[in-house]
């Protein structure tokens, strides 16, 4: 198929950006979206133009490194990561607009690459269970109710890609954060730090410049790992719990 691609190009954090239009011919439906961009890049290099910078690593939908806004949809029109999106979802003659994730807390690096280290800092603030190596009790000493274990697992599936922020009208990271609060808060091991955790994480989230949540659900719709919206409920509940405990 032949495609028209409108792609955001920006040389660096401070440089002005612009949309550039490229024509790409003979795209096969078996290509992944990123392989399509690889092909475009190879042709750009051959022509002497600098290739388009975009992030990816595992290319199997698990590392969370990739992420593009594709014609207004985070990770494209189907529920998956950009690297697992295949060109058979598009049609001959389509015009596709490709933009980076846009959020104040995800500063621009180059072209389609942004800096998501704010997510790491949210985890630093409290997204962990303090268990020094060597201090762990025997694994079977604490059974975990299966329902809770399953819910923790479902929330732990988050890959930290940032699509929730990209899709949210408020550029809020509540889904990402709710996923972590739920994962750790459902487990018995996560109880001692439960309320301190949620306060610290939310405070860091706000400090990073993410927006506040208005429960629109745009995040959960965009999430490639189908993290459900109710993790935000859990986060809210735990924050309220923290208030009640004088935090």
């Amino acid at each position: 198929m032949n495609l028209t691609l409108n792609i955001w190009r920006q040389d660096g954090p401070e440089a002005p950006g612009r949309m550039v239009t490229y024509q790409l011919a003979d795209v096969s439906g078996d290509m992944s979206f990123l392989e399509m961009l690889d092909v475009l890049n190879e042709s750009l290099i051959t022509k002497g133009e600098e290739p388009i910078a975009f992030d990816s690593d595992c290319r199997e939908g698990i590392c969370g490194m990739c992420g593009l806004m594709i014609s207004g949809n985070a990770h494209g029109p189907v529920t998956t990561t950009t690297c697992q999106l295949h060109m058979r979802e598009f049609h001959d003659g389509d015009s596709i607009t490709i933009e980076p994730w846009r959020a104040d807390a995800f500063p621009m690096i180059k072209d389609l690459v942004v800096d998501r280290s704010s997510f790491d800092r949210i985890i630093q603030a409290g997204g962990f269970i303090s268990a020094n190596t060597g201090s762990a009790p025997e694994a079977h000493s604490v059974p975990v109710e299966k329902r809770k274990a399953d819910r923790a697992f479902e929330a732990a599936a988050c890959i930290g890609c940032g699509a929730c922020v990209a899709a949210c009208p408020n550029a809020s990271a509540m889904l990402f954060m709710g996923a972590k609060v739920t994962h750790l808060g459902e487990l018995p091991q996560g109880q001692p730090e439960r309320y301190a955790r949620v306060v610290k994480m939310v405070a860091q989230h706000d400090h990073e410049g993410f927006g506040g949540c208005t429960n629109t659900g745009a995040c959960a719709d965009a999430c490639p790992k189908e993290i459900p919206l109710d993790v935000i409920n859990t986060l809210n509940r735990d924050l309220r719990g923290a208030l009640g405990r004088g935090r």
């Binding site: 846009r102 899709a167 410049g209 993410f210 927006g211 659900g217 745009a218 719709d221």
Partner: peptide
């Protein structure tokens, strides 16, 4: 403030 630079193509999500 959380999204100073807007998208060229408006988000297709219902959230907005």
């Amino acid at each position: 403030g959380a999204r100073p630079q807007r998208y060229a193509v408006k988000s297709a999500a219902k959230g907005a």
